[in-house]
Design a protein around this nucleic acid. Structure first.
Lengths: 204, 204
DNA sequence: GTCTATAGAAGGATAGAC
DNA sequence: GTCTATCCTTCTATAGAC
């Protein structure tokens, strides 16, 4: 039959994003075909074009929503932000780890598929990525100005922290020896060391 | 004419690896065609198969040589390794940053294209990656045992250090404000803080 | 050692039936 | 809302000429 019984456009659209997210994360955008995605969704390839004008837009929407979710989630989390810079830093570290472990596929795509975005789409995503980075930079600068942190370099410290925190997604396994809570504690410990190391300070 | 004047198989093979490395790093393995590589090399597509049995092997060889170069370079560098764990750690940090900044394309491929390797090829590369990780783990464990480091977690500390050091490749620019020497100093400063943070120690 | 030519498969995207 | 069928392009890899 032409229309499957119980089929639903809204739902298919969601299933499509979910399927594409999973496949892009696993095999990479360029390596995944529209036919593969269609098979995962349970429709024929042509039907996908009811929900996306093309493959590029599909990738962009996945990444764009991911970044929006990230920024929105942090806004919610930090609504009642503590005044103490160290407390805010700890809040950020915990948030970053938790969010990234919950959305491993999205994170993977957001970092690996940047080069497959068109120029215009890249600019949009890159701006949101910078926006997120600046959240941490602001915390570090505030803490530094208040004399609570001793940073080796204010910009590189934020790059280093984000890199080490995001790295968790590359080795974390649900059945590993460490709970998410425990992982947060360990990274908090390391980040504290990193922002309290003033002996070889190089200015910012 | 059939054979270009001055053409040279040995040289073409090298040019091929170089061209493929550049293109794979820029656009990704799956997005780059053999025709594109051939154009970069300056030959027709069919001629590439004199130097590689297929595209997959080309990717594998690039990654495999990269890992061999990395391990060999460290062997040379650490031939006269200092006894002091902190000195060895500093040697590793400087080496890692310097090597990775000199070989940005290779690093990019080695991290991003793992999923495009066949199962067998993946196993080979993954083993060498683990081998490299263990070099740092050994330094951290020795230093910890000698009471010179206070680690939050011995395994996660090594993951965190490698992640933050490798992250340098994502933002470094030749014409940026910081020299490689200066970058090494800053990361040394941060790594010191990371391995001397014992207050919230969680064991290993 | 490299070329041209091409086989054969797979890709993105569209048209029209139901 | 989805299917089938298909257009047209592009891909990897090979064959045979030079």
């Amino acid at each position: 039959m032409a229309r499957k019984s119980g089929s639903d456009g809204k739902k298919t659209a969601q299933v499509l994003r979910a399927a594409a997210t999973r496949l892009f994360a696993q095999y990479g955008y360029a390596a995944v075909s529209m036919r593969q995605i269609a098979a995962e969704v349970g429709v024929q390839a042509g039907a996908l074009y009811l929900y996306t004008p093309d493959k590029q837009t599909l990738l962009f929407q996945i990444m764009d929503r991911h970044m929006d979710d990230l920024l929105t989630a942090w806004q919610g989390e930090s609504a009642d932000s503590p005044a103490d810079p160290m407390a805010r830093l700890e809040q950020f570290v915990r948030f970053h780890i938790r969010f990234h472990l919950q959305r491993v596929d999205g994170v993977f795509i957001a970092y690996m598929e940047l080069r497959n975005l068109s120029k215009e789409n890249f600019a949009v995503i890159e701006a949101k990525r910078r926006q997120y980075e600046r959240l941490l930079e602001a915390i570090l600068q505030d803490g530094s100005a208040a004399g609570r942190f001793e940073l080796c370099d204010s910009k590189l410290s934020s790059y280093a922290i984000i890199a080490m925190l995001t790295g968790v997604t590359t080795w974390y396994r649900d059945d590993g020896r460490l709970s998410v809570e425990k992982i947060e504690e360990i990274y908090l410990c390391m980040v504290r060391g990193l922002v309290m190391q003033g002996s070889a300070k190089t200015g910012s």
